[in-house]
Design a protein around this nucleic acid. Structure first.
Length: 473
RNA sequence: GGCGCUAUCGUCUAGGGGACUAGGACGGGGCCCUCUCAAGGCCCAAACACGGGUUCGAAUCCCGUUAGCGCUACCA
């Protein structure tokens, strides 16, 4: 048994979509699982819409996700000569024919009988040799169409089981444009044959292309590969995921502070399950457990809430040290300069309350520089509720903390002083703590206040408390 | 319209003739912990689309209905 060869073949006409990323992931997983080869092919035959920039973004997105390729990227445009030769070969074998219909004539046919019901009627297939020669002599432009055989076109799909089409339900589609370049289905089959691809793992939107491609394999005299059609990814409204659903590009999630490992884990579980209750899967187990047969046959809704939860799982498992580079990078783009300050304790303090690097950096910044925005609604409500006591309690705390020397400034000592001061003034602990939290962060949410004070540091803490007390009431 | 695919909690899913009183996770609700919010622990609500078969027995197999989705270009 020769090792499988799979490919991921995006067209560089847009960003790397999460659906495409998952297709790439499944291919990659299958290659890793079987010891096969993952080939990357860029399908740039649509010259109008393909760009170098899109190609770069797709490559970057794949790398970011940790999906590497054993061969490629090969650019489909480089194979134009072979595509054309294959079309000519089909022509010579009478498996294809020249079509001299103009776009206008085709549009006319389309409009008659309703656009939805249109199928090319095959009129040029019936042209006799003389008629063809006459048009050729006049240099009439032509496309090449396949002569679709009237036979069963079926395959055993690795995820769906047997799928069958009838040749007479399909029309004689164009394989070569009048400018001599190949149409998608021909280019794909020609390249997959050339690259000796054994397993085509792609989106469900291609199942209706498959019988056309099988017809091409047969006409070209080659055995079709194994096909595996993976389900579509939908938005929360059950419609195909698109821009109006918000973030759909892999790069968007990178921007939002999602970990590649979390994204990969989440994507893998969208339409695939290792069986049982497993959710968080390290790469090695993902590879170990992966199989085409376990892929779901129904579409899956992309749930960003669960993605964030999963990211939070990876975040809590990560050490502060491993997070530092990403946090520094994020702080920098926020315009926060931590200087020589050791950020690890700050990261540890807020890690558990964050789901993304973005949220984490935001909280680190607050501890470094104080509230970055106006107090939130709950903070305002608290201040209003406590009224004069807000500033008064703040001063009580500040006075108590003033007595703590820098050398004793730690969570344990601070807690003792706080409790002592609250006791002495007959304050509920919460009424003393919450205003401090608001003074230091502008919110009513944080780690325990004594720990917050310890991470923020003595001088900054006291300054913020006094300032809040002064502007309070 | 034609052709094809699909159907288990709101969402991701387990299950593949008896282990099902249908399991887990996200999200939701409650309780515990607690200075707040998270995290964590415990608990609750929440699904086999419908109708026929086959079978002693169907979420599971078959047929039909319904619904959703995909494709139906000299796009990919």
């Amino acid at each position: 048994m020769t090792p499988p060869r799979v490919r991921f073949a995006p067209s560089p006409t847009g960003y790397l979509h999460v659906g495409g990323a998952r297709t790439a992931l499944f291919n990659w997983l299958y290659a890793r699982k079987t010891g096969g080869t993952f080939v990357l092919r860029i399908e740039d035959t649509d010259r109008e819409r393909s760009t170098e920039a899109h190609t770069q973004v797709i490559l970057d997105g794949l790398r970011w996700l940790g999906i590497d390729w054993g061969e490629g990227p090969v650019f489909q445009g480089a194979n134009a000569t072979r595509h054309r030769a294959d079309a000519e070969r089909l022509l010579a074998a009478r498996a294809a024919y020249r079509c001299f219909c103009t776009r206008e004539e085709l549009d006319l046919q389309r409009n008659r009988g309703g656009a939805a019901a249109f199928r090319y009627d095959g009129r040029c297939r019936r042209l006799d040799a003389d008629a063809v020669q006459a048009r050729l002599a006049q240099r009439t432009p032509y496309t090449i169409r396949i002569a679709m055989p009237d036979e069963e076109l079926a395959w055993d799909d690795a995820v769906h089981g047997r799928i069958s089409f009838q040749g007479h339900d399909l029309d004689d589609f164009v394989i070569l444009r009048s400018d001599g370049t190949a149409i998608y289905n021909l280019a794909v089959v020609s390249d997959d044959i050339d690259m000796r691809i054994t397993h085509v793992i792609r989106g469900d939107d291609h199942v209706s292309n498959t019988p056309k491609q099988i017809a091409l394999y047969r006409a070209l005299g080659h055995q079709p590969p194994v096909f595996a059609h993976v389900p579509m990814i939908l938005g929360t409204d059950g419609k195909k995921l698109s821009k109006r659903h918000g973030a759909t590009a892999v790069g968007d999630y990178q921007q939002l502070g999602i970990f590649p490992a979390a994204m990969r884990n989440f994507l893998a579980l969208l339409g695939w399950s290792p069986g049982g209750d497993r959710e968080i899967l390290p790469e090695s187990e993902m590879i170990e457990l992966f199989s085409l047969e376990a892929i779901q046959s129904k579409p899956a809704v992309f749930d960003t809430v669960k993605l964030e939860w999963m990211n939070g799982q990876y975040l809590s498992a990560a050490t502060a040290a491993s997070l530092l580079p990403a946090v520094r990078h994020q702080l920098e783009s926020m315009g926060v300069a931590p200087g020589a300050r050791d950020l690890a304790p700050l990261v540890d303090a807020v890690k558990i309350r964050s789901r993304t690097i973005l949220q984490l950096a935001e909280q680190v910044a607050v501890r470094l520089e104080g509230p970055r925005r106006a107090p939130d609604d709950k903070a305002v409500a608290l201040r209003r509720k406590l009224a004069d006591a807000f500033a008064a309690n703040l001063n009580v705390v500040a006075d108590a903390l003033d007595a703590v020397p820098e050398s004793d400034w730690n969570a344990g000592t601070i807690l003792e002083r706080l409790k002592g001061a609250a006791d002495a003034h007959g304050l509920k602990l919460g009424d003393a703590m919450q205003p401090v939290r608001v003074a230091l962060t502008g919110t009513t949410v944080s780690e325990p206040v004594n720990e917050l004070l310890a991470t923020v540091g003595r001088s900054a803490s006291l300054a913020r408390i006094r300032a809040a007390a002064a502007t309070g009431a």
